[in-house]
């Protein structure tokens, strides 16, 4: 018998690790996210001006397309009086370019930390509530349901405005509104995993419940939450900017995209478009990058 069995299984006995190709959309996502991370690390230092100090030149429009080559040559040659304002200056005289590239330090830091905080708490409570089902964890889910029914933006606004407009408070507020999402997501996944054969098999093998939860259930329940992370980071950036826009976010002169758009908003009806447009473009691309990345990860996960 064994020889025939070998024959039957021949095509499966040698193992070739499968190759996975990244698609172009994923590459766009990864590029954008990488650039934003780079700016979060080095952005404040590489701009031509200090992002938190005004210049004497107020509301200067950005150079026209035809002027750029000349300015570039002059800049490199060192013949300019002062470094060019690539994106112009705003009504207070800040250099917009320096502020746009310095802002990820604020925006990404807030989004990332809020996400990590909510991810950890949400996954932890989700695992507990999904794996050990009793009245205590049932209560936990009810509490989370109530939290999730809060109107997100207004709640974030209330928390930040009443607790004080600081980055830390924004992080806590965002983590507060996002934790229930992770809890629910993880719990649903855990519920699905606990009835699976390998969990039963692990139990039949004599593993303790804690060991099954941590070694088998948790790793297999994490993926949806991790994919959601990419989306959540993007939305956290939107929310951070939105809070600044209505005056419930970080305080000026912190370089922050939403705050910059808000500063320029009053001028836009007068035709001064640049103070708002450039930071908005940065948000638009960044959040799109995170959305694309999240989606690519999701499709890869679905494909297995």
């Amino acid at each position: 018998m064994p020889d025939q069995v070998q024959d039957l299984l021949l095509d499966e006995t040698t193992y070739v690790p499968p190759v996975r190709k990244a698609d172009w959309l994923m590459r766009i996502g990864v590029s954008i996210v990488t650039l934003v991370i780079f700016l979060a690390l080095f952005g404040p230092y590489i701009g031509p001006y200090d992002p938190t100090r005004t210049t004497i030149r107020i509301a200067v429009p950005p150079p026209g397309l035809t002027e750029i080559p000349g300015l570039l040559a002059g800049w490199i040659g060192g013949t300019l009086e002062y470094p060019p304002h690539w994106m112009g200056t705003d009504a207070n005289g800040y250099d917009i370019f320096s502020r746009v590239i310095a802002a990820p330090r604020t925006d990404l830091k807030i989004a990332l930390l809020a996400n990590i905080l909510s991810l950890i708490t949400g996954v932890f409570f989700g695992l507990v509530a999904g794996y050990w089902r009793n009245w205590g964890t049932e209560l936990l889910i009810r509490v989370s349901d109530v939290l999730q029914s809060f109107p997100v933006f207004i709640m974030a606004m209330v928390l930040v405005a009443l607790a004080g407009r600081s980055a830390t408070n924004i992080i806590i507020a965002l983590a507060f509104v996002y934790t229930p999402i992770y809890l629910r997501l993880t719990r649903a996944e855990v519920l699905g995993q606990t009835s699976r054969g390998f969990v039963e098999a692990a139990r039949a093998m004599g593993n303790s419940e804690l060991s099954i939860a941590l070694r088998h259930v948790l790793p297999n329940s994490l993926t949806p939450a991790l994919i959601q992370s990419s989306v959540t980071i993007g939305f956290a950036i939107l929310l951070t900017a939105g809070l600044s826009f209505v005056g419930a976010g970080v305080r000026p002169p912190t370089p922050e995209w939403g705050l910059m758009i808000s500063t320029g908003a009053n001028q836009i009806v007068l035709g001064e478009w640049w103070p708002s447009v450039f930071p908005g473009l940065a948000i638009s691309l960044t959040v799109f990058g995170f959305a694309v990345l999240g989606n690519a990860l999701e499709r890869r996960y679905e494909r297995g």
Binding site: G234, F235, L238, A241, G242, F245, G258, I261, G264, A265, I268, V269, G271, W273, S276, V277, G280, I283, S284, V287, F288, F290, A291
Partner: peptide, 13 residues
């Protein structure tokens, strides 16, 4: 994945 307030401003402009 867009900041709606910014698009609102753009449209106004």
């Amino acid at each position: 994945s867009q900041p709606e307030f910014w698009w609102g401003l753009l449209f106004v402009y």
